[in-house]
Nucleic acid binder design. Structure first.
Lengths: 330, 330
DNA sequence: GCAGAGTATGACAACGCTGTCTTCCCTATA
DNA sequence: TATAGGGAAGACAGCGTTGTCATACTCTGC
């Protein structure tokens, strides 16, 4: 493995000049820059991260903290983040965070002390954990998170159009003629997802329909709770003709209970999910749902962390129309 | 952030002694060891990884390379690996590997040059990539992989009971009275998964049933190919009464085509998958499948890498009986 | 009572890089 | 022509650890 000294010797310059070239620092003549670049090429030199970290301040590591049980969500974001890291010369260190109490902080302290990552990346629902955020602020760690709610100084918060997405779902169902629509809402801990319900409510209101509280049931963001919530909704004296579940797992639960109750989807009941998980495609019938550009979101967070600015693009949440929605009966 | 010097000063010893205590090196008196330990506690000292890496040889980093499109599989293993890493004071750096050709090696080279990980962790189908393995061997990087086939010196290969699992599925279906059974086989690139078919064939043979080649269709390990393969099987003049798909995505495809063809599952057709992905639970009907202890497998690989020995436990693959299998019709 | 063989401890030089400070030289201005 | 100003390049000292070697002290066994 060649070191900076080898490059310097080959190019006939000091190691400092090589360092300047590598770091794109100013005040290097074009001539020397070329010689150094050639030497780097020839030796296939790559700077050693550990040495860089030790001497400079940066570690070129970003910690990815997650406790989201949905592997496709986590995986999508992680994939985008990891490839962006690669492009920028960074690396992504993953840390599953136990949901339990104080263990989290000890974990964070250990991580920081050992690795000194240049930034920390939080995804929901961790991105809403106020104590975690505060601990991070105390450690003066740049932190970027997706769809966080609590505003915290010194952290980038990549906003997602949750509300607009909820609105989009409402418009779709209204367009199909549905008027009595049920909602399976997220638990309070998922504050970003709760905005989906807000947007949905707005969409209904725009069509002159108000969201009946009796038709709004809270779920736990998982499959079993979708079954329970769906059953509560469908056993109502006046059941809804469509149900919007705020994530796919719960929507799949609604689908299951509909099957069990002998309802036909979409003839008797329309169902919309959220997330476009793999399971939504393979379900029967395939689920109409909302796709988030997970990879892009992961990339945007890394950009924010590395560039130190949160000029995230506007993400496009997309309604994926499949076979679980149809026109309202009658 | 306290350094080793602070600890040494507080304990009244040399930094080297602190280093010895931290690294559990021999030849330190109990008395000094206690004093140093106390000082470490008091200052909340954690060794700096970058400095360790630079001075010693180890980086306490393990690279996790994956190109598996199934997020629940990747995520499960990654989760197990990451928490074991944490217990052992290591960190897991993730690298999604593009499937494309030579880009992979450049990626590997960059990774190694920058990070010098102490080990590399490969999961299928990457664990079967002979060129990747060879490159790794050239770089003298300890490497551990799950369910690899090609034997490569200097790499740990954590074996999984694929064959026994295939046998288990056969026994189950035979026990239900099925005799004409179709198989959706994996592509040649997934050699570990192909053993599932071997075991399955053995199981049938043990019951005096031979696996008809016409009933064995190759899929691409994804949902669409499951639909195609399932259709080929079900449109046969004498269709099978049960189908074993070698992963869940394909099994879900079989389920879908069965629905489309108006077949009832499990009354008209029994279906078995493999992997116990989240989608298999939320499918309609819930899919009988085989669960792998993904987290344990991830942990075992980290253990092998860190301890330098591959005394992996025997993993228990488990048949998860749900509602997609029933007795053979009449 | 003394060589020989540990055992415990520390001094010091790496490891590969970046930050700071210094030196040199070239140009613009009075 | 003298002088300041600034760009280009390098010397050198860390960064926080571990490895190597030196040193002092403690046992053995004869």
């Amino acid at each position: 493995m060649p070191s900076i000294h080898d490059v310097a010797a080959l190019a006939g310059v000091s190691i400092k000049t090589v360092s300047r070239v590598v770091n794109k620092a100013p005040n290097v003549s074009a001539q020397l820059r070329d010689r150094v670049t050639a030497a780097i090429q020839q030796l296939d030199y790559r700077p050693n991260q550990s040495a860089r970290r030790l001497a400079g301040g940066r570690s070129f590591m970003i910690a990815f903290l997650y406790n989201n049980p949905a592997p496709s969500y986590t995986g999508g974001i992680q994939g985008g983040a990891a490839s962006r890291c690669r492009e920028l010369g960074y690396h992504l260190v993953v840390e599953p965070v136990p949901l339990a109490g104080d263990e989290r902080y000890a974990l964070l302290d250990r991580l920081v002390a050992a690795l000194r990552p240049d930034g920390v990346f939080l995804i929901p629902p961790l991105s809403d954990d106020p104590q975690m955020l505060q601990r991070l602020a105390e450690l003066k760690l740049p932190c970027a998170r997706i769809a966080g709610s609590a505003a915290v100084a010194e952290s980038f918060n990549i906003q997602t159009p949750e509300k607009a997405a909820g609105r989009m779902v409402a418009d779709h169902l209204i367009g199909l003629g549905h008027r009595r629509i049920g909602v399976v809402a997220p638990p309070p801990s998922h504050s970003a997802a709760r905005q989906r319900v807000e947007g949905f409510r707005e969409g209904l209101a725009a069509a002159g329909v108000s969201l009946d509280d009796a038709l709004c049931v809270e779920g736990a963001f998982d499959f079993p709770s979708g079954i329970v919530a769906g059953e509560a909704l469908l056993r109502l004296a006046q059941p809804p003709s469509a149900i919007f579940a705020t994530n796919d797992d719960m929507a799949l639960g609604v689908l299951t209970i509909a099957h069990r109750l002998g309802l036909r989807v979409p003839e008797d009941l329309s169902v919309v999910g959220f997330d476009d998980t793999p399971a939504s495609l393979t379900a029967w019938p395939p689920l109409t749902t909302v796709r988030q550009p997970l990879e892009l979101m992961g990339e945007a967070v890394i950009d924010a962390l590395v560039n130190g600015s949160a000029d995230a693009p506007d993400f496009l949440f997309e309604l994926v129309e499949r076979d679980s929605c149809g026109p309202a009966a009658g």
